[in-house]
């Protein structure tokens, strides 16, 4: 698997045509490197140096797309996980019994972009009787499975995107958050920034990877592999506006049918966080699913932190200046 990964990443890739005179010139300069032709050390070094500076034509903006994941119909079959691994040719993570229900995937990472979570909520006395969905309430003992297929939230104002110093992370024409693997240099800022623990750095190559929302498939007019594979339509893919409508209808429906705790997570912005282009229908507190109860965008603090940082330095400089002026002969 590993070697196949290397092979694939070494294949020449077609990219958008260079934008502007300068980029055209640079592209011509390193054309053997760009087109994977045989080359000596000088073109190789030149290519590596210049490549990141060649700009491509930006694609025309399209309708914003995303995922709406209805966790109440998820059956935990992990078809989405498999489809994701397969389509994106992600390497295996090995196999470990986690001891946590049927969840042996454990977490999202550079090599796992879909993660089905299992939450067993059973009371001791009635552990053999499965109550139907509708009977769940706070007083009665819970007897249910919660399952949720987790992935990148494609935040509208994404901390990973704000943190990225190379411009590798972009918001593409579908308003999805996308990491350009050929640009990322593995600085890890995005890992530190993501409040959902979605991104990690791959051991292989040292770059960050995460769900692309099947950018390649979308560009070819296909729906993402996970949504395609989901047998219960727990994963809905489409224009975000439509998804929001669909989701709120489903919440109303569930409320009518006696699931008053159903709600949407991430469909609209909160005071501390932007809307997410992939949002969820949940029936318990977010933290039960391993999501932050109140996600917070760290960038809300950045300006203040800069002010304190600069002030700390300026005060010290002022003190030094005063001492020098007072004591100099």
């Amino acid at each position: 698997m590993a070697s196949r990964e290397h092979e694939l990443s070494a294949l020449p890739q077609t990219s958008d045509p260079p934008r502007g005179r300068l980029s055209q010139l640079l592209a011509r300069l390193i054309s053997p490197y760009l087109h994977g032709e045989p080359r000596g050390p000088v073109p190789e070094v030149l290519g590596r140096l210049i490549y990141p500076f060649v700009r491509g034509e930006a694609p025309k903006p399209q309708q914003a797309t995303g995922f709406y994941t209805d966790t109440t119909v998820c059956i935990g079959c992990k078809a989405c996980e498999v489809a994701c691994k397969q389509w994106n040719q992600l390497p295996s993570d090995g196999f470990n019994w986690s001891g946590n229900s049927y969840d042996n995937t454990n977490e999202l990472s550079a090599t796992t972009w879909r993660h089905v979570k299992f939450i067993e909520q059973f009371s001791e006395q009635t552990s053999n009787v499965l109550a139907p969905m509708g009977t769940v309430s706070d007083e009665s003992p819970l007897n249910r499975w919660l399952m949720m297929s987790d992935h990148c939230k494609h935040c509208l104002a994404a901390p990973c995107h704000q943190a990225c110093p190379t411009g590798a992370i972009i918001q593409n024409e579908f308003e999805n958050v996308y990491i350009q693997a050929d640009i990322c240099n593995g600085c890890s800022s995005c890992i530190a920034a993501c409040p959902f623990g979605v991104i990690t750095r791959s051991e292989m190559g040292g770059h960050s990877h995460k769900c692309t929302l099947c950018y390649d498939r979308q560009r070819d007019g296909l729906e993402p592999a996970c949504a395609k594979a989901c047998p219960t339509q727990s994963i809905h893919f489409g224009p975000v506006e439509e998804l929001r409508e669909q989701a709120s209808k489903r919440v109303d429906q569930l409320h009518e049918r006696g699931v008053p705790q159903a709600y949407l997570y991430g469909d609209v912005p909160s005071e501390t966080y932007s809307a997410m282009h992939s949002f969820y229908l949940l029936v318990d507190r977010p933290s039960v699913y391993g999501l932050p109860d109140a996600p917070f965008n760290p960038w809300l603090h950045m300006m203040g932190d800069y002010v304190r940082s600069v002030a700390g330095g300026l005060v010290a400089i002022a003190v030094l200046l005063v001492v020098v002026f007072l004591l100099k002969p």
Binding site: N100, S109, P195, G197, V198, G290
Partner: peptide
């Protein structure tokens, strides 16, 4: 050291710093 459920897990991932 398996962990049951997700309630008390740290959600974020640690950068290799």
């Amino acid at each position: 050291g398996g962990q049951i459920g997700y309630e008390n897990t740290t959600v974020t991932k640690v950068p290799g710093w």
